[in-house]
Every structure is written in structure tokens, then in C-alpha cells.
């Protein structure tokens, strides 16, 4: 890059630092919204992926189901293609597992859940499947299981996966919406900042025109300043969201993580870099639009 252009850009930013800082703070608010939306989407997506790869069925059994029929069903299931293991979980075991998971919880609602009787937890068969089992085979298996008189209900977790997929798509939509908001904010804020800077440096532009500077030489520093504004705003937003994440992480891990079976993760590095690059590009584009009425001599 032309050193004269970078020098003029850094000199310009130093001279107008208050204006640039103000613009960066204003822009970072929009970028925080975008980064937060992406953070939520990332985690819902991870959850959806986790549940999609959980090749498991749970066949809840009717209360008082005869043991020999349950054993017979269990043996029959083991012979079905695609079934890797079948495990019987009694009401007592289900209650005990739930109690152990929720033992650390302090709030009243959970204490009430723990007080539920053993009968509230039906016995079940936990059926593990091949990861590559087809949807058709799974549907057939569920249909056949439902026909057994001892089976109360079959849980495929498919509903949850579908709900999560719907949530992910809504999250992506929200992120798209926030991206548009960010785009408009960048265009408005960087554009007006650069116009103001241009007005203040009108004399400089006029001099440059007189001495034979090309368009790119004249515009270069302003584009760099706009790009830097966008990139710095995005980086600041990442720092803010990161700080919020660090502060809330322990609480999230205690509450949400055990419930959904995943760790709440921060934005992956590629996404972070992408947001900053997006900010830089948007800033440059906005600056370029702001320079349409560049002084001509």
C-alpha cells in the first residue's frame, strides 16, 4: 500500500480522533447485536447437531408391563438390523438418574420435581441405533414398536431436532436482519463521519487535485479511515460480547448446559475474523459512498 496514503490516513485519524472514537462506539452497538445473534445461532446449531447425531430411541413402557413380555421385546429388538444395543431402565433407575442430575439445583421448582414419586418416571427401553440408520428404517421401527401392547409411547427426539432446526433458521433470519441493521448503521455513521472529515479536509483535497493527485490517491486515506472505523467497531463489539460471555459463562454452564447436554461456546475464530472483515469492508464501502461529492477543482 502507498505509504503516503497510509500516513495521511493515520494522521487524519489522529487529528480527528474524537470523531472517529464516537463513530466507532456508535457502530459497535449494532455489531454487538449482530455478534449476539450469531452467538445464539452458533449454540442452537451445535445443540441441533448434537441431537441429530444422537441415534437413540426411547420406548416408554406401560405401568405394570409383564417382565416376560418386556424381555421378549428386548430380545426381539436386539435382532433388528440397525439396533446396536437395548437397555432396560426401570422406574427406580430413571428416578435415581434424574435425582443425581438435579441434586445440585437449589431453586424451589427443582426441589418439587425431586419430590415426585418413583411412579412418575415410567420404565423404558433405551434403544441405541447405528449412526447411519435411514429415516425409513427408523420410521418402520417406531411403527412396529408402537404396536406392542407393553409400549406406552416411543420417543424419537425427532420433534426436538425439528424444533431446533426451526430455531436455527429463525436465528439465521434474525442474524440476517441484524446484518441489514448493521449495514445501514455502517452506511449512515461511517458515511456521515467521512463526509464531515471530508468537509474539514476540503482544503487538503483541493490542494491534492491541483498538484495532480489521482482519484485513488485522494480517496485512499478516507477509504482507509472508513474501513478502519468498521473493523475497529466490529472488533470492539466482539470484545464486548466476549466480556459478557465470560461473565455469564459460569452461570450458563450451571443452568443451561446440563439441561441441553452441550457446553455454551463462544463464536468460533473464523466467525470472529469474518465479522471484523465484514466491518472493514462495509466501512470502506460506506466511505466510498460518502465520497461521491468529492471536491473537484
Amino acid at each position: 500500500m502507498n505509504t503516503a496514503i497510509t500516513r495521511r490516513a493515520t494522521r487524519g485519524m489522529r487529528r480527528e480522533w474524537r470523531l472517529h472514537v464516537l463513530a466507532i462506539f456508535s457502530l459497535s452497538v449494532s455489531f454487538v447485536c449482530l455478534a449476539m445473534a450469531l452467538l445464539v445461532v452458533t449454540n442452537i446449531h451445535a445443540l441441533s447437531e448434537r441431537w441429530q447425531t444422537t441415534s437413540q430411541l426411547t420406548a416408554y413402557l406401560k405401568e405394570g408391563a409383564p417382565t416376560d413380555q418386556v424381555t421378549e421385546l428386548r430380545e426381539a429388538l436386539k435382532k433388528v438390523a440397525g439396533v446396536t444395543s437395548v437397555e432396560y431402565v426401570s422406574s427406580t433407575e430413571a428416578h435415581a438418574e434424574f435425582s443425581s442430575k438435579e441434586a445440585k439445583a437449589q431453586d424451589d421448582a427443582r426441589n418439587e420435581l425431586l419430590a415426585l414419586p418413583v411412579e412418575a418416571f415410567p420404565a423404558s427401553l433405551e434403544i441405541r441405533l447405528d449412526a447411519d440408520i435411514t429415516r425409513e428404517s427408523l420410521t418402520g421401527l417406531v411403527r412396529q414398536l408402537g404396536q406392542f401392547p407393553v409400549v406406552l409411547e416411543v420417543e424419537t427426539y425427532e420433534r426436538w431436532t425439528e424444533r431446533l432446526a426451526a430455531l436455527v433458521s429463525k436465528g439465521v433470519l434474525a442474524s440476517g436482519f441484524f446484518s441489514v441493521i448493521v449495514l445501514l448503521s455502517v452506511l449512515a455513521i461511517v458515511g456521515s463521519t467521512i463526509r464531515l472529515v471530508l468537509h474539514r479536509r476540503k482544503n487538503e483535497v483541493e490542494v491534492l487535485r491541483l498538484i495532480g493527485a489521482t482519484d485513488s490517491f485522494v480517496k485512499g486515506p478516507f477509504l482507509l479511515e472508513g474501513g478502519a472505523q468498521g473493523a475497529f467497531s466490529a472488533a470492539l463489539a466482539i470484545v464486548i460480547v466476549g466480556a459478557i460471555y465470560l461473565l455469564a459463562r459460569t452461570r450458563l454452564h450451571e443452568t443451561i448446559a446440563p439441561f441441553f447436554g452441550i457446553d455454551i461456546a463462544f463464536l468460533p475464530w473464523p466467525a470472529v475474523i469474518l465479522i471484523v472483515v465484514f466491518g472493514g469492508i462495509m466501512g470502506t464501502v460506506a466511505a466510498n459512498l460518502g465520497l461521491r461529492k468529492l471536491v473537484t477543482v
Binding site: 482544503n203 483541493e206 487535485r209 491541483l210 495532480g212 493527485a213 482519484d215
Partner: peptide, 21 residues
Amino acid sequence: TSVPFLRRNIGTVFQQFKLVE
């Protein structure tokens, strides 16, 4: 796009100096 190249061959001095103060 050729105008800047013309101006590089012409020096200009004005009453108002036209310096970047």
C-alpha cells in the same frame, strides 16, 4: 483520468497560497 497527469506538468501558485495549514 488524464487530467492529474497534465497537472503534474504544471505548477500553480495562488493569491491565497492554498497550503494545508
